[in-house]
Design a binder for these strands. Structure first.
Lengths: 219, 219
DNA sequence: TGAGAGCCGTACCGTACGTTACGGTTCGGC
DNA sequence: GCCGAACCGTAACGTACGGTACGGCTCTCA
């Protein structure tokens, strides 16, 4: 299923095409799936004929937009050597904060909404693409860190996937569903940092070893 | 905001009207937001004129459907007296299992998808209604249990809301977003029970006191 | 039994939007 | 300067669907 849903097929887009997709992103944030091809053409100052020539149809345009946004989000990796308790904690906090920042951005909310809608009508694979570039992509990025932590004797778990999913739950909690459903939840930088620290602390309480487990409880 | 978004305004629906709304639920599961008024009328063996007379417009029909479904989900409450460690654990597991069952049902997935779509276009308050009857309703139902557990010396936390959100995250993890995005994730009864037990165990590890905290770690 | 209300089935209307077609403009190559 | 390609702006087409109107059927109640 999720084999090669274009996590990485660098489609070469001209600057002009990227500008068009950025216009789509903007409209998506403002109007959601209700955006019309006419509106896109107007916003991007291009003709509808060009849109169809470049992207095939409305669905192709949205797909290209999702992949374009995904290609912008790729984050850097971490140093898996020299892992001690402090470095592990910092990396986990970094992951958590980055993830919270992504899912709480208006762009992510808008794209996820569109993908969810389309997953309902089965009229495209936007949902799969978003999953592959979101939930599963960070899973693949985080798991090496977890396993390095285990190898260093800092974490104890059997199932890497299960451990990751727990971390995912501790970080995200109800944030994404609330935002998707339109709750007026705003996450500032300070709040994100605090949440990521809390989630990390909880995760280490659950999966840490003597050397990495927090001494104090977090109230 | 969320003050009185009809968590409970028992709209008296005739049996016929309920049958119509059940038809809408079925169509929603099958076709998502793409359902047409004509399709509803055909499925429910009623005329479009009747649909409009009863529910006003398409939006009113969907709103009534969401509220009708919500009214079916209300679960029973728990015994907050005589709370010991075992009873607390059982209640938490029951909550978790019930919640997992709800969010993994095709009906819930379909309704949440529709609500998410509409939240994007801002064309109705379906999102708020789903939030009020979903995430926030279970919050209000679970918090008394958490506070009773604290009063009985079985739990230790300061912020009830924060404790609830952690439980929410531990139970749901990535399930809801994956289902909404169309991942082929199926939760059987056994899996739900196991997940609820794991989440409860983890929650008690984090917030339990000497008398309720699990002795063993969960691998 | 007959009048009226409620509802079914269907035809109809208006509109919005995806898609296509086309005339006009710019620009690089010869 | 001329040609063709690419692209812009806009008009036009076809369709799908929300919403309305209407004729006919059934059931209730006086």
């Amino acid at each position: 299923m999720l084999t090669d849903l274009n996590i990485n097929d660098e489609q070469e887009l001209t600057a002009r095409q990227q500008a068009v997709l950025d216009a789509v992103l903007g409209l998506l944030v403002e109007e959601g799936d209700a955006l019309t091809m006419t509106a896109v053409a107007r916003r991007a100052s291009c003709s509808k004929e060009t849109l169809y020539k470049w992207f095939g149809d409305r669905d192709g345009l949205l797909t290209a937009t999702v992949q374009w946004q995904a290609s912008k989000v790729r984050a850097g990796n971490y140093d898996l050597q020299h892992l001690d308790a402090a470095a592990l904690r910092d990396s986990l906090e970094g992951f958590g904060a980055n993830w919270l920042q992504v899912i709480s951005s208006s762009t992510s909310v808008a794209l996820n909404r569109v993908a969810v809608s389309h997953a309902g009508s089965g009229k495209s694979s936007l949902g799969q693409i978003v999953l592959a570039n979101g939930r599963f992509a960070i899973g693949e990025r985080l798991k090496p860190l977890l396993e390095a932590g285990r190898a260093a004797g800092l974490l104890a778990f059997e199932d890497t996937e299960a451990a990751f999913r727990t971390f995912f739950g501790l970080v995200g909690r109800d944030v994404q569903i609330r935002l998707l459903l339109g709750d007026a939840l705003t996450l500032g930088a300070a709040e994100i940092a605090r949440d990521a620290a809390r989630a990390t602390q909880q995760f280490l309480s659950l999966f840490g070893t003597e050397t990495s487990r927090p001494k104090a409880r977090f109230v």
